[in-house]
Design a protein around this nucleic acid. Structure first.
Lengths: 220, 220
DNA sequence: CTAGGTCAAATAATCGATTATTTCTAGAAA
DNA sequence: TTTCTAGAAATAATCGATTATTTGACCTAG
């Protein structure tokens, strides 16, 4: 989806899709909230057709729920789903990182170092949106050379899902610091080509960030 | 998506989505073919808006590719992607079946027996479309109680992808017979609650059907 | 006072027409 | 002959208006 924006003229539908996706990830809309099409039209100053097309894509992607004749709703959050997403991320990202460590080349090492550097330079609390984007890019860079397009696709999708939970997570400074430290450790293990320990660490990393998110997630 | 049709009045968009999805799985359109919106409108006798919404959903789902200002194309087929899909299916369905065998209840056992019975009664060559549907349902039934909604979602998606390859597969009677026999074995292992061997068998099953499909898949 | 039903307002879905972009064709220049 | 460039035709994307469905308020019957 992202590369649509790069390659030449993006359509109104693609632009509003990306904007809405970002706003959904950043928690602009409450979980379970009904999205009035008329209101969205006014908010984003966009025509009806491209808006509806974007909403249809988001529903198929899993960020919205579509009920026939009753429009679109933001998906609900629940402890059960967070647990599900977390376990899936552990499986898929764990495997992907193992493969990436085996197959990644020098170019990958450079990208990884760069992504981690940019991330560590950005203050999480001052530049929330920017930090989230860099964080996503870092995790993407980690698994990028795993060799499986479908694995990467599912990982991105789960990452977007997970971000909605992360967005409501409490500060928990101690744990946050620990999570940040793990990013550096992940780079070290990747460069050392230690596939096994890299996998173990990313699984821990995912579990830990899930626990932070779980703190704020009301009982379902 | 399927339950939209059940619950009351389906919209035109939902109906055409499901129809198009089936036609894509059944190979009505060539791989890589450009889908002219005007022609689709005539073919399915449907309005422009619902049609475009359905196409947007299918693109987000991964059965179509959308190029801005240049409409929609059927996705290409390649040996590489088939290998990727196959490996993902092995991982995900293997794991799902293991979990399902552990957690499935008596109701599941009944559903499984029923699905397998219906499948074995239907002649593959006379009722192609019906057989494909029953085959999908059987595989769905197998993993249904795995406990993870996202795992099931990804498995269904990969199954749809795989079906496009299966559709172009050659007869290969000998192998087909072997694949059919495995369905019965899978039921037996499931009822015997042998999670490990069930997992091994479904992985073999997936690999074998992939090899059949690979026979007809031109070098990419 | 409540349950059920009807009508009006709100809103989602669809249609038909318009606009913008790409693709094709033909002609001109190198 | 080939390549580049209009111009025309085709087609994708968008808009504005219309239709269909749902929601909620109000009213009546029990």
């Amino acid at each position: 989806m992202t590369d649509m924006l790069k390659q030449g003229s993006a359509t109104a539908a693609s632009r509003i899709y990306e904007t809405l996706r970002q706003d959904l990830l950043n928690g602009r809309y409450r979980a379970g909230e009904r999205l009035s099409i008329t209101r969205l039209r006014e908010t984003y100053q966009v025509g009806l057709s491209p808006l509806r097309e974007a909403l249809n894509r988001l529903a198929a992607y899993g960020l919205l729920r579509q009920e026939n004749q009753r429009g679109f709703r933001v998906l609900e959050l629940s402890r059960e789903e967070l647990a599900d997403i977390t376990e899936m991320r552990r499986q898929l990202e764990g495997r992907a990182l193992e493969l990436a460590v085996r197959h990644g080349d020098e170019e990958w090492e450079s990208q990884l170092l760069a992504a981690n550097h940019r991330l560590s330079l950005t203050d999480k609390r001052t530049f929330v949106v920017e930090w989230e984007q860099l964080h996503s890019r870092f995790h993407n860079a980690l698994v990028a050379p795993c060799g499986s397009a479908w694995l990467l696709r599912f990982i991105s999708q789960l990452h977007d899902q997970f971000d909605r939970y992360r967005r409501v997570a409490p500060r928990a400074l101690e744990l946050r610091h620990q999570l940040d430290a793990q990013h550096q450790e992940l780079v070290d293990l990747a460069l050392a080509r230690d596939a096994r320990r890299a996998r173990e660490l990313i699984e821990e990393h995912i579990t830990l960030s899930s626990e932070v998110a779980m703190l704020s997630c009301r009982q379902a």
